[in-house]
């Protein structure tokens, strides 16, 4: 439920938990690192274009990882690129989230059997929060992945450390 669904009683005062406030602020303006690897990146660009707008969820693409909240790994991760992705991930400030988009970054995708240079899933290198399946996933599927990420953030607790 939205944070602002509560009624305003005495003037402009709303009483809620601090956790809810922080979680609501975090999930409503998730900024992503503009990072696209392969075919899924084109669907990500189509998602941020005007037909399936990403901006209405508060998602703005930022060029530098230090300004960003989350990263969408869209496309095949190769062994050469995996070390660089790890470095990008370490450059992002906390709290940070990862969406693994597409079959290639979930588990190696169509290249799982004979790909000698393909990393079979980005979760061998960095911890993933949401997996979006598809090859490539439709923009609606990516939006659902984003909403699942928002639900995950909504249920986060300030005291308990996340896994």
């Amino acid at each position: 439920m939205g944070f602002l669904d509560k009624e305003f009683t005495d003037g402009n005062i709303v009483i809620a938990k601090a956790e809810d406030l922080f979680n609501w602020a975090r999930l409503s303006s998730l900024w992503q690192v503009s990072f696209g690897l392969a075919c899924c990146a084109i669907e990500m660009m189509a998602t941020s274009a005007s037909h399936y707008d990403f901006d209405r969820f508060g998602v703005i693409p930022r060029p530098s990882p230090r300004h960003a909240d989350f990263i969408i790994i869209s496309g095949t991760v190769t062994l050469k690129m995996a070390t660089r992705i790890k470095r990008l991930y370490e450059q992002m400030p906390d709290p940070k989230y990862i969406i693994s988009m597409g079959s290639c970054s979930n588990c190696g995708g169509p290249y799982w059997e004979h790909g000698y240079h393909v990393l079979k899933g980005i979760d061998r290198v960095i911890p993933v929060d949401v997996y979006v399946p598809g090859c490539p996933p439709r923009p609606e599927a990516l939006l659902e992945g984003l909403i699942k990420l928002q639900e995950k953030i909504r249920n986060e607790s300030m005291i308990k450390k996340s896994a």
Binding site: G75, T78, K80, M81, Y116, H117
Partner: peptide, 13 residues
């Protein structure tokens, strides 16, 4: 080479 996905090896299989 950051996106080398071994297409030619897959073709042989």
């Amino acid at each position: 080479g950051y996106l080398h996905r071994c297409f030619e090896k897959h073709c042989e299989a």
